[in-house]
């Protein structure tokens, strides 16, 4: 069904799904780190920025007369490079993460968002700065672009433009991310993470190198964030540093949205992270498309008491978090398990 979607759905709707997939990839990394290894992090947007920037710098061609750094690597290699660079950034932060935990770790990781804001505006030769940004290098494989409409392609009478192709690229990345995460969670690395989360002393007594397990979780989660950063840049067609710490793709708001995703989805659940992302990242965009065509929604936003679609969704997922915390701490994942238990088999 997902495979054939571009044949039925318009470009604007494909973009909604694509944006949700960006959130899903970042949230999978976060749910591994926070849900399985027990390390609360608000630093995900920083690693997204690192990944997005690394991709732009690695994949762009160096241009005469431009200050922008461009290495000119093939985009596939640039994506892998971006994931590696952001994982290494996560690894570099791991010693800090090994020393503090809980709310202190959340605060420590939040400082990364401020670091990202500073670095993003300071090193404009990499990020393009906050004013103009820099164009995203198109994702091409064997001369076939997956993010623009070159060369032209028509499938079953539907022209395959940029969004149709990006849909498939993102779908592959998300499925790959889910696949890796589930495999890890269900075997040795996941087991050691949960042991470290539940009781570090007994984990060590069972042979788990606690510091290393934590560092690995951080690196893995940063790698996912980095990939999500690349997707974000491809989705916007642009890499741009944030103007302030409160709004933007790499901001505190983004950090909180990602945390909301994993809580709504059910901490530790990979599929929950995907569902949560559909809510938190997908819903605002979907509402914006729906508002003009649904009379009730249109009337709410019309009078403009500040009720823009994004304000509505902010309320929606705010109350969703409260409901989840009160009624179903297992999140959407637990609700899903109950439903399949009742109707399944």
């Amino acid at each position: 069904m997902a495979l054939a979607l571009p044949l039925y759905v318009s470009e604007v709707w494909l973009r909604v799904f694509e944006y949700a997939m960006v959130g899903a990839v970042a949230a999978i990394g976060l749910t591994l780190l926070s849900g399985h290894c027990g390390q609360l992090s608000l630093g995900t947007p920083f690693f997204m920025l690192v990944g997005g920037t690394a991709y732009a710098a690695l994949a762009a061609d160096a241009e005469a007369g431009s200050d922008l750094v461009g290495i000119g690597l093939p985009p596939v290699i640039a994506i892998v490079g971006a994931v590696v660079v952001s994982s290494l950034a996560g690894l570099a932060f791991a010693p800090v993460a090994g020393r503090v935990s809980g709310i202190y770790l959340a605060v420590a990781t939040l400082s990364l968002v401020f670091l990202g804001l500073y670095l993003g505006q300071r090193f404009t030769e990499f990020t393009g700065g906050a004013a103009t940004g820099r164009p995203a290098p198109p994702f091409t494989i064997f001369g076939f672009s997956l993010t623009t409409r070159e060369p032209e392609l028509t499938v079953l009478g539907v022209p395959f433009g940029a969004q149709e192709r990006m849909w498939y690229l993102f779908l592959i990345l998300v499925i790959g991310g889910i696949f890796l995460a589930l495999g890890a969670v269900r075997s040795r690395p996941g087991r050691s993470w949960r042991a470290v989360r539940d009781n570090p002393a007994s984990a060590a007594a069972m042979g788990v190198n606690v510091a290393r397990a934590r560092a690995t979780a951080f690196a893995v989660s940063a790698g996912y964030a980095g990939l999500a950063g690349v997707m974000m840049v491809l989705w916007f067609g642009l890499l741009k540093a944030d103007e302030n710490e409160f709004q933007g793709s790499w901001s505190i708001a983004a950090a909180i949205s990602l945390l909301a995703i994993v809580i709504i989805g059910g901490l530790g659940s990979v599929w929950g992270a995907v569902l949560g992302a559909a809510f938190v990242f997908g819903l605002p965009l979907a509402l914006r498309l729906l508002v003009p065509s649904v009379p009730l929604l249109a009337s709410i936003t019309e009078g403009s008491g500040g009720f823009t679609p994004s304000v509505i969704t902010a309320f929606a997922y705010g109350s969703l978090i409260v409901l989840v915390v009160i009624f179903e701490p297992g999140g959407l994942a637990a609700i899903g398990r109950r439903i399949t238990a009742r109707f399944g088999r």
Binding site: S192, R194, D198, V208
Partner: peptide, 27 residues
């Protein structure tokens, strides 16, 4: 010092940690 939400089998499998190999990518 067990993980309460985790199954018996998974808890005991942790004991095999040092006897086995493989990290995130291999898994």
């Amino acid at each position: 010092a067990l993980s309460g939400h985790v199954t018996v089998l998974d808890n005991v499998m942790l004991g095999r940690h040092a006897l086995t190999r493989g990290g995130f990518l291999l898994a």
